[in-house]
């Protein structure tokens, strides 16, 4: 029983406290590059020095707030795109024959068998100037000059939507799979065309699945670092990128920690919302 708590303590609470501690300390040219919070002053007195500068700094330089805003925008649009692509897929799988259903689900999960990094590199191969897509389009004579796709927002969205799509499809499928399809017949019987039945019955009843799947895409997408860095080019200002730069390039660990803590605070409401949706979903009450 205690194991999950031990796990949380070891891999969440302890790292969190370390990061929190660093975010309140001063920068230092040392290893590690920050000053300790607690210091022995003289023989018997312990001084605690809490520094709010790092947080204040985030609000003085517009870079950070812009990065936060941009991250939320990118995550939001990516979630929306995932939903537009993933809903029909989840719906299709849920309505497929049971034998076919498992194969389709396997296909959704299949990309997880390769590392994310490899798959993102594969997209570079597809999208670059003399990459697969440009070459095919040029050989077909559809375009005469290669399209600039790599290192654009387009490539970044492609990468994020591609990587996170399964996280949206799976919970949505789990929800749709429980759906009583006879309700759609009942709606048609009462005068609904099939598309009306979808908007009046299926969509409202799959609300929890939509929310759960969207949160699973949105929350990690806000802090996404790898995909914008590899596909998005230098202009893709996302908070994960800023954090990485502060940490590794500037060696400003306290500022980086403050960014991380602020990001966490920003995402807590969404996580709590997700949790309550999950609880409702498992309780079965609609």
């Amino acid at each position: 029983m205690a194991l999950p708590y031990l796990w949380l303590l070891l891999f969440f609470v302890v790292p969190f406290i370390i990061v929190l501690k660093i975010s309140f300390s001063d920068m230092d040219l040392a290893i590690p590059p920050y000053k300790p919070l607690l210091e022995w002053v003289g023989q018997n007195s312990l001084a605690i020095k809490v520094n709010f500068e790092n947080y204040a700094f985030l609000f003085t330089d517009s870079l950070y707030l812009n990065a936060f805003a941009n991250s939320i925008k990118v995550a939001f649009l990516s979630t929306l795109l995932c939903l537009i692509i993933g809903y029909p897929m989840a719906y299709g799988i849920a309505r497929a024959r049971p034998a076919l259903r498992n194969i389709l689900l396997l296909l959704v999960i299949l990309p997880f068998w390769t590392s994310l990094l490899l798959r993102v590199y594969a997209w570079i191969g597809l999208l670059k100037a003399n990459g697969v897509i440009n070459n095919v389009l040029m050989s077909l004579g559809i375009i005469h000059e290669p399209l600039t796709m790599l290192y654009t927002p387009f490539a970044m969205y492609v990468g994020i939507v591609y990587s996170y799509l399964p996280f949206l499809i799976l919970p949505l499928y789990a929800n749709l799979e429980k759906m009583d399809w006879q309700l759609l017949e009942a709606a048609q019987d009462l005068g609904c065309r099939p598309w009306q039945a979808f908007f009046k019955i299926t969509l409202p009843l799959s609300r929890n699945g939509i929310l759960a799947g969207s949160m699973l895409v949105f929350i990690p997408a806000v802090g996404e670092f790898v995909i914008p860095a590899l596909l998005g080019g230098p202009n893709a200002l996302m908070i994960g990128r800023v954090l990485w730069d502060e940490f590794f390039s500037n060696r400003a660990w306290p500022v980086a920690s403050a960014v991380a803590i602020l990001l966490l605070i920003l995402l807590v409401p969404f996580m709590m919302w997700y949790q309550s949706v999950q609880a409702r979903e498992t309780a079965g009450a609609r």
Binding site: D180, Q182, L183, A186, D189
Partner: peptide
Amino acid sequence: MMFQSYALFP
């Protein structure tokens, strides 16, 4: 039609 499962909209 009245369905066997009643098919009421939950």
